[in-house]
């Protein structure tokens, strides 16, 4: 499923929602993608993994989307993990904005799932 240049695949693994985001996340696609991910997380879910391992680009809009998800989930006591391998442009941006202070960044989906108990 594509939304603008953003590709979004959402699945659920062991009570955790995994959102696989591809393409380029900017102001054209981020707000809508954030809405869709948030809606896909039921209250019953233990947490959310946003997989950005194959995302080519992220800007402040994408970052804002992630912070928005963190806010939503924390109010429901659900955990958020972001997958962003180090050395990639996305990880660099998340590093600059110090996203790790809001939610953990994991190198892959498995680690992210493990991190949610």
């Amino acid at each position: 499923m594509k939304d603008g240049l953003v590709g979004l695949e959402i699945k659920e693994l062991e009570g955790v929602v995994v959102a696989h985001v591809t393409g380029e996340l900017d102001i054209a696609g981020a707000p809508h993608a954030g809405e869709r991910i948030a809606e896909a997380v039921p209250t019953s879910a233990r947490g959310l993994v946003v997989d950005m391992s194959e995302l080519d680009f992220i800007d402040s809009s994408g970052v804002a989307m992630l912070f928005g998800l963190v806010r939503r989930l924390s109010s429901r006591r659900q955990e958020l993990r972001v997958v962003a391998p180090k050395g990639k442009p996305v990880a660099r941006v998340l590093e600059i904005v110090e996203f790790e202070r809001a939610a953990p960044i994991c190198p892959d989906v498995e680690r992210a799932l493990e991190a949610i108990d």
Partner: peptide, 13 residues
């Protein structure tokens, strides 16, 4: 390239 593009993207946004 990635970093400059990101920065310019922010300016354009």
């Amino acid at each position: 390239i990635a970093e400059i593009t990101t920065a310019c993207g922010e300016a354009a946004t």
